[in-house]
Design a protein around this nucleic acid. Structure first.
Length: 675
DNA sequence: AATCACTTAAACATTG
DNA sequence: ACAATGTTTAAGTGAT
């Protein structure tokens, strides 16, 4: 009844926080429900895409205008502005090259075709770009010619105006100009055809010193597979670069033609900054030894005797035939250029994404690097999900071009009750990108998880994979007195989890709600007010979800609580002792002790409860053994991942989608100075 | 399909 | 009056 408030804009946090950018499957997990608030979640992606599109349009327009302006200035030097000219010229004066770079020239059909066919390699793109540059040069010459013509026309016009001629004659002049422009266009087309024919004979060589080409990226949405393919290609190209130890965050789309002899020599790099404004900067050519330059028979578009042009897969026995095929089948035409544009856009977006993820990775690695005993922890600029999908697709598509081997953990280490917790590639694959909401059910000991990943949770805005109730309980149990005020609970949340430094209103409400809702939280009046404590029995009772609330059972437990509590207290005390070394050992990579202790504690908590109360528990399927080893033992085998052994994937899988989120909370300012 | 646990939102009451 | 705290209801979602 009060749900009409769901449409209020106040539902900010939940609506926004799902902006997972990792891919389709990410959106579908855990996030859908959050979009319900006002359905604006999808609009995030669309919105940015639209924005980018608008920006590109504007930039294209700007380029065209600048050209026009340039011409106008030259004309104004001659003294006068033609009032008519403005009406007709702008559209026509846009150079073809610019027009070609604007998105709208692609028909939807073409677009679909392009998207179906994946993408170009950077090198191929480079070649095409250079070809376009050659075209540009020739067009410039034409433009010069055209300008001169226009100046002459202006002079004519001037003279006519001075002579007091009528507008009709001006129109004549205008039509004359129009004819000129059409002529120019025709010539440009001819140039293009010529270029095409040139290309068919072989790759063009291009004169150096060409100004940067104003490239306009595309805005088409990307298909995940395409993205993966692209990512693979891009990263494979970058690996060589990154190993040279450069700063990979500054990547520019180098449109300069370096050495005129080898078109594929130049490195095709893209600047993330450039992608924000659509301007591409010219950089000095990098001395870069791309593989196919020094090994002429290795071409990024050629592998295993197959043309790897997106969607082609034509068989070419040798490299020569491949080149032939490349030049004949993938010449400079509408399709190829469109693919280029798509590629550019894709690369730009990937670079942006990469930059973001790298930032995150930085924070993660600083944390994980301390813990990791692995010597060769190569930073994986991928979030978990994308690395999973990517590595899959990469290994499937082209094993030889595996850019990375994702063997290093990029997510918090989640301990298991026994054995080391190492996230392996295979384990990651088994999990997949499915998001499990909360791992409470999977009985990952919350204390050890938090302890192990303390730094991670503190720094990464990742939602801890535990319920509010579990977290609250943990907060209370961690306190020396085993009791906390509400505000102290708040503080614990914000102190321990970066995630809870946002949306305070939301999660605080949830905390209060949970405190009130769950019987396991007992409010105790104090001199200083009220504090909250945990009734472990109630808490443990809550966990075996198949046991329905049984009044008699509850009463039994009430009595058993008296026996339980001292033992719990003792265990917790020992845990408290452990907890300090636990954190340090956890950071050293030896969390087993703490895990064990916490696991024992949690199990014992349950054991006590059930040992005292299970007489009335006639739930079928519970064996006597299970009654002795209660909750956890009963539940853990039910969880396939837990049963399998050292799979700390429950939480990892939980993290990854969150980690992929591109949340931009617009909510209240971060209000966690409550330390 | 039904149910449960959890989350989120919100209204309302109480208290300092 | 106000904010913090606490209670309760309602609805959506995912898992079982």
């Amino acid at each position: 009844m009060m749900q009409e408030s769901g449409t209020e804009t106040k539902s900010n946090g939940s609506a926004i926080q799902n902006g997972s950018s990792g891919g389709n499957h990410l959106l579908e997990c855990g996030s859908l429900r959050e979009g319900r608030s006002n359905g604006e979640a999808p609009a995030v992606d669309v919105g940015t895409a639209d924005l980018a599109h608008v920006q590109q349009q504007q930039q294209a327009l700007q380029v065209a205008r600048q050209l026009l302006l340039h011409q106008q200035q030259q004309q104004q030097v001659s003294g006068l502005k033609s009032p008519k000219r403005n009406d007709k010229q702008p559209a026509l004066q846009v150079p073809v090259s610019v027009a070609m770079m604007t998105p709208q020239v692609i028909t939807p059909q073409q677009m679909q075709q392009i998207l179906q066919q994946q993408v170009l390699s950077p090198q191929q793109l480079q070649v095409l770009l250079q070809q376009q540059q050659a075209l540009m040069l020739q067009q410039q010459q034409l433009q010069e010619f055209y300008k001169k013509q226009q100046e002459q026309l202006q002079l004519q016009l001037l003279q006519q105006q001075h002579a007091g001629k009528q507008p009709k004659e001006q129109q004549q002049v205008a039509t004359q100009q129009l004819a000129f422009q059409q002529q120019l266009l025709q010539m440009q087309q001819l140039q293009q055809q010529h270029l095409l024919s040139l290309q068919r004979q072989g790759l063009l060589t291009i004169q150096p010193g060409q100004p940067a080409l104003p490239l306009q990226p595309l805005t088409q949405g990307m298909i995940p597979t395409e993205l993966q393919q692209l990512w693979k290609e891009v990263t494979s190209a970058h690996t060589t670069e990154e190993t040279t130890g450069n700063n990979h965050s500054s990547l520019d789309l180098t449109t300069t033609c370096v050495s005129s002899s080898a078109p594929s020599k130049t490195s095709l790099i893209m600047n993330p900054h450039a992608s924000t404004n659509g301007q591409l900067s010219v950089h000095t050519p990098k001395r870069e030894s791309l593989s196919h330059e020094e090994h002429p028979h290795s071409h990024p578009l050629y592998g295993h005797g197959v043309c790897k042009w997106p969607g082609c897969e034509a068989v070419c026995e040798d490299f020569q035939s491949f080149l032939k095929h490349l030049n004949s089948e993938h010449a400079l035409d509408d399709r190829s250029t469109a693919q280029c544009r798509v590629q550019m856009q894709v690369v730009q977006q990937l670079e942006l994404q990469l930059a973001k993820d790298k930032e995150r990775l930085q924070a993660m690695m600083t944390h994980l690097h301390v813990k990791s005993t692995e010597p060769k922890t190569a930073p994986q600029p991928l979030n978990l999900v994308s690395s999973v999908t990517l590595s899959k697709s990469a290994s499937e598509a082209s094993p030889q071009s595996l850019p990375h081997t994702p063997t290093t953990p990029t997510a918090p280490i989640t301990p298991v009750t026994q054995g080391p917790s190492v996230i392996t590639t295979t384990s990651m694959h088994t999990v997949g990108p499915i998001r499990r909401r909360y791992s409470d059910k999977y009985n990952v000991p919350i204390s050890s998880d938090i302890a192990q990943n303390q730094e991670f949770y503190k720094n990464a805005e990742v939602r801890p994979p535990f319920t509010y109730a579990s977290l609250i309980r943990q907060a209370i149990l961690e306190s020396p007195e085993k009791q906390l005020t509400l505000n102290e609970i708040y503080n614990w949340f914000t102190r321990m989890f970066a995630y809870f430094r946002r949306n305070a209103a939301t999660w605080k409400n949830a905390v209060r709600h949970n405190l009130s809702l769950h019987k396991c939280f007992v409010r105790v009046e104090n001199v200083k007010g009220a504090v909250w404590t945990v009734d472990e029995v109630e808490f443990q009772k809550r966990r075996p979800q198949k046991i329905s609330g049984n009044p008699s059972l509850i009463k039994n437990m009430q009595t058993s609580h008296a026996y339980c509590t001292p033992l719990n207290a003792a265990l917790q005390a020992s845990m408290a002792e452990n907890s300090i070394p636990l954190y340090t050992t956890a950071s050293m990579g030896n969390p087993t002790l703490g895990n064990l202790a916490s696991a024992i504690r949690e199990e014992l908590n349950g054991a006590m409860e059930h040992a005292n109360s299970n007489e009335s528990d006639s739930s079928p399927g519970r064996s006597p053994l299970q009654a002795v080893h209660p909750v956890h033992v009963k539940e853990e085998p039910l969880d396939p991942e837990e049963a399998e052994g050292p799979l700390s994937l429950v939480t990892t899988a939980n993290h990854s989608p969150d980690f992929d989120h591109d949340r931009d909370y617009e909510d209240e300012p971060v209000n966690e100075d409550m330390e």
